[in-house]
Amino acid sequence: MSQAAASTADRHPMPGMMVYNVKLGMWIFLLSEVMFFTALIGSYIILRFAHPDHFAEPGAVLNVPLTAFNTFVLICSSVSMVKAYAAITQGDQKGLRFWLLVTILLGTFFVGVQVVEYIILAREGFVPMAELYGVAHEIEGAALYGATFYTMTGFHGTHVTIGILCMWFVLYRAWQGKYSADNYGAVEIMGLYWHFVDLVWIILFTIVYLI
């Protein structure tokens, strides 16, 4: 059983194996994530083309400057993730811990701003429920706007949150000194996931807030 309990990263490297298992697995998993967000974004595009009257002009309902700043924060967290990865490839334990913590804080800030944004929007009557949309206040757009907005950004926020939880785990292991210049697979795949989530947000921000 020790075999399964041990790090699976280097189980039986076969000749001709280009990428170790966990990294390859993460890439493959991210492909399926692409398809998941494709389903959500594709539905949004179809619904918006079919019912333009349901959707408001950019900036009419959503707070674009606030989210633009939030986007900047998330991109910064990708930079700090790269710094964490670069640190451990050099064996720099202190740097790894520092930059992981920075990434966690930036990610948490992003989710926090999103929660605040949700609360403000919901008070204005911007809700996913078809029958309650705009009941509190007269706001532009109609039911499909709220439903697609919350579904897409909500699932992205969930992905960021899961990423933060995983990163706490990586940080905990980093504090135990489990990673080194020879063994940084977990940091690398954490980074892959984090950059992916970041990339999805850039697409979401563009099509939901800007266009």
Binding site: A130, E131, L132, A142, A143, A147
Partner: peptide, 16 residues
């Protein structure tokens, strides 16, 4: 939760 992605009564798209 009462969204209307697929409900035509609220302009949702069953064909989607």
């Amino acid at each position: 939760i009462g969204t209307a992605f697929f409900l035509p009564a609220s302009d949702g798209e069953p064909l989607l």
